[in-house]
Write a protein that binds this DNA or RNA. Structure first.
Lengths: 333, 333
DNA sequence: CCACCTTACTGACACGCGCAAGTGAAACGC
DNA sequence: GCGTTTCACTTGCGCGTGTCAGTAAGGTGG
């Protein structure tokens, strides 16, 4: 409490003093600098000192000196993150780690400007889900951030931006329903307004698929996360002649399923239901939920490639093929 | 491609030159250093220069100079992260942000030592879920990390470690089943070996609750994520006289529910089922799933308090009360 | 004996920033 | 007219690291 308020950091200078050499020599030994003849005797003396003092180099100073920071920041969206996002982050982290990059995710704090966040970290690249405005991008560039990968930007396709194939998921849902003979399909839109950015392109995919297949436009209905309300929606759909429903995701699909049970509607006989994500609960629904799944691994690796190429100044790789989206056929459709 | 390979960072020196003042004056203006009289004329000259050049201070240099980094690192566990973890991170991020701290989560990359991760960031504090060994803690201290909050460490209660009330969730599950007249209860253990650290204390809570209530020890059964296998487990439980099952979490509980459907066992009549987490799918199960929910918000705020107190050198606040765990009663138990 | 090379190091700078201490000029008190 | 205070700044140091450019000691060739 009195003597040592802060335990003072162990620096490479401490190691040098302990080993009786200069700081430079310590640096050479620890970094294995080539073309530098250091005899094993001193080498071991230094390693011992490192061990004894418990020295760990300062990431901060390293980053400052080298100018680059091997840190990739992922700004998480503010909508609830599920298992799909989890595995995506995991794969992304691993892919980047293979290249010596470290991924950090920031769960957005309520009422805090994004600029403050990336400023306090000084990353080499930023991955995010929302669209961001030009001034923000310019500010990042000025702060030394080389690459920004923005997913899900409906408007312009800027440098290094990627549209995660949301439309495709909608398309696959609709095509499956059409293939099983459904002529009029409904869309179960999520209640949470924060999900709009994701829901809109998926719905768009369903719309265009319907148009191409010569079907009527989908009947969109916002679905409250409540079984009774879902039952009302189901009844309304059936009354309108809807025979198949694409849900925004599996959670919404499960709500629809609960609604069919209350409304006494047979699935898939009277109404087929398709979800998105293949959450762990999907196979255990009654009936087991047919769903569309994007291979998070492939997407993550593509994002990683985008970041790595961007950092080395090379052009972006081409987008992954359409085989990243799979239909998982169970019994609900 | 030829002239400016790297766009060279805009520094405060550039701003100073542009505004015709010294770098220090720029620093004073930007940081609003007190007891420093700067006339509005120069102040605005500087702000204009900042604007024009698009200057953003380097987080790295700031951290190096100030010695502290206002960054809190959360090392995510390697088991699949669900919505519960998501909301916890979100609340934690917000709570820390109120104190000027920024939270970053690192999804663990396969086959990468943890030490490399916190080293590349140099955080002020680390929050993690596993237990960590003494040498690792010592290494962190040497690297200047002030606080480490480890959750879920079954053995020793080290400085600033916290046991998220896992046992309590198990206890609440068991007590509810006992209160509804179940005399012999089963425990549905998760298949994924990575979940052991979480599952064991929950099971322990069930065990002690059974013992205290004068019931037989719970019948533990590992539940594969497969409906047929789950049905086998359900049949076996029923044959043994088990009338209530505590599941590790809602996903497992939903598997049990699917098993009961296949096995023709009535829920909750023949077998009651209680989950943990209250995932979005829980209310839509058939029957709607009774589950136990930890208030992630309260836990997150406690962790945040722990970190903040730790950084300011004050002692840890006392643990949150037992009211963070709630039973959400639906129809499955 | 000196030129020359290798070995094993070290000195000093730069990275971008915050801040303690100083400095010249103007204003003020008596 | 001179000492003192206030104003509006600036000079300079240090944070911990990587690395270029030396440099003294020792060996080799002629």
């Amino acid at each position: 409490m009195t003597a040592e308020q802060r335990p003072r950091r162990v620096t490479s200078a401490d190691v040098a003093r302990e080993a009786g050499v200069s700081r430079t020599t310590v640096s050479y030994v620890l970094n294995g600098t080539p073309h530098q003849k250091i005899p094993d005797a001193t080498r071991q003396r230094i390693m011992h000192a490192v061990e004894r003092l418990g020295y760990a180099p300062s990431a901060t100073a390293r980053a400052l000196q080298s100018g680059r920071s091997d840190v990739v920041l992922c700004l998480l969206p503010d909508w609830p993150i599920g298992p799909a996002m989890g595995t995506l982050l995991e794969t992304l982290s691993t892919s980047l780690a293979a290249e010596g990059l470290t991924l950090y995710a920031h769960p957005r704090a309520a009422g805090r400007p994004v600029s403050e966040v990336w400023r306090s970290l000084g990353p080499a690249a930023v991955v995010l889900w929302d669209e961001l405005d030009d001034t923000e991008v310019a500010a990042m560039r000025a702060a030394g951030i080389a690459v920004t990968v923005a997913l899900l930007s409906p408007t312009t396709q800027r440098q290094g931006e990627l549209l995660v194939p949301q439309q495709r998921t909608g398309r696959v849902q609709a095509e499956h329903l059409a293939a099983t003979g459904r002529r009029l399909i409904g869309y179960a839109y999520p209640e949470d307004p924060r999900l709009k950015g994701f829901a809109e392109p998926r719905l768009e995919g369903v719309r265009t698929a319907c148009a191409e297949l010569g079907l009527d436009a989908p009947v969109v209905r916002t679905l409250p996360m409540d079984a009774e309300a879902a039952a009302d929606a189901v009844r309304a759909w059936v009354a309108e002649g809807v025979t198949g429903v694409c849900a925004y995701n599996d959670d919404v699909a499960l709500a629809v399923l609960a609604g069919t049970r209350l409304a006494g509607v047979a699935v898939p006989g009277d109404l087929a239901v398709v979800g998105v994500d293949d959450i762990p609960a999907a196979p255990f629904a009654s009936p087991p939920l047919t769903t569309v799944n994007a291979e998070q691994g492939v997407i993550a690796q593509y994002i990683a490639a985008l970041v790595i190429r961007g950092l080395s100044g090379k052009p972006a790789p081409r987008r992954p093929g359409s085989d990243t989206i799979h239909l998982i056929r169970r019994e609900s459709a």
